[in-house]
Amino acid sequence: MRASLYILACGLLLTSAVAADPPRQWTSSDGKSKFMGNLVEFTDKEVKIRRSTDFNQYRVALDKLSKEDQTYIRSLLREKRRDSGLKEGAYADKITGQFVKGVSKQGLNYQFWGSPAQDGTKRYPLVIWLHGSGQSGTDNESQLGGAPKIWTSEENLSKQPCFLLAPQCPSADIGWKNKVADNLLALIADLTEQLPIDADRLYLTGSSMGGFGTFSIAAKYPQVFAACVPLCGGGDVKNAEILKPIPFWVFHGDQDDMVPVERSRAISEAVKQAGGERMNYTELAGAGHGITGIVYPRTDLHEWLFRQKKPAPSTN
């Protein structure tokens, strides 16, 4: 073993074995040593690598590797944690096939749905439901209100299995904005870290105050959601440029006597005028404010929504 390969000198020589992962180049933390090898085992403290030149295995402390190698190992640890997240970890007790109550680290009430029959090695979409003003409060029950349950019906899950998150806004006076929005995004991020959720298929939808919240949260966090479905809400037309890359399907009843249909018309048109080619707007003739029972059962909506996926980051 060369003296320059000090990164291996601190390792323990082991018997050779076949590593499952393909070989990659590993670099020491000071950048002086590089070698090809297969990753055999890993923890958050050390790795076991089978060196390609002699097929011997060595244990190496994680902090003796380059930042790039450490990031790679931590990404593997993340995926391993998510693979087992349905049965172990922070949210395993929420995976029952029923809606289960919880309180986030930031104090946001929510109910969560996940199925223990799901395959932890696969990645599933997450649908986030934002309720209207009348379901605000602290009981952690009112936010279900019937509308979210359509997503977890046996028929829909047979076509598209998913997770569902139903947070509860603490006060209609606050709404889905400011700290409430920040707390919600922190919860979504934590769920995505701990469970087999496809971070490229996070879908945001809501009605009335939740429709407004869908627009405002998407504008505040435009890189997060793969698609948005606001019902009988509205958005700030000044955010049209920010919103234009996001796939939207907006619904509003033309006889809505609580939120004027012009609110959805205006933001939809503003996004289109800004060049938003993924803005879809459906106006329901003769429909009033309560349109969740009309919209959410639509097969074409489900088919459209679950096709949406965030594009890969540009390398330009």
Rank of each mutant, 00 (worst) to 15 (best):
T121K: 15
K272D: 08
F225Y: 09
C162S: 09
F248W: 11
S142F: 00
T214R: 09
Y296W: 14
T27H: 05
V60I: 15
E262Y: 10
L184H: 13
A117Y: 09
K34T: 11
A199R: 10
F99A: 04
C10T: 15
S84Q: 15
W304I: 01
E283A: 03
K149S: 15
C162M: 08
K87I: 10
S84C: 12
V103L: 10
G211V: 04
R74L: 11
E303P: 04
F215C: 10
Q194G: 05
G276W: 02
P148F: 03
I291R: 04
K272H: 11
K64M: 14
E68I: 06
G132R: 02
F55K: 13
F42R: 10
V127W: 05
K101F: 02
D182K: 13
D44N: 14
L202W: 07
V229M: 10
A186C: 03
K101W: 02
P148T: 11
L284E: 03
S207F: 11
T282E: 12
Q160N: 13
A285D: 06
G146R: 03
P230Q: 08
R201W: 01
E193N: 15
G107Q: 02
L126Y: 04
F212S: 02
K94L: 13
V229W: 01
A147G: 04
F35Y: 07
K159Q: 14
E283Q: 13
S52R: 06
F248L: 09
G210S: 03
L86C: 09
A199N: 08
E262A: 14
L86Y: 12
R263T: 15
S28H: 02
I7A: 10
L77C: 06
I291L: 10
T15D: 15
I7F: 11
A3I: 14
D93Y: 07
D54F: 07
D119R: 06
G290A: 11
L144Y: 00
D257H: 11
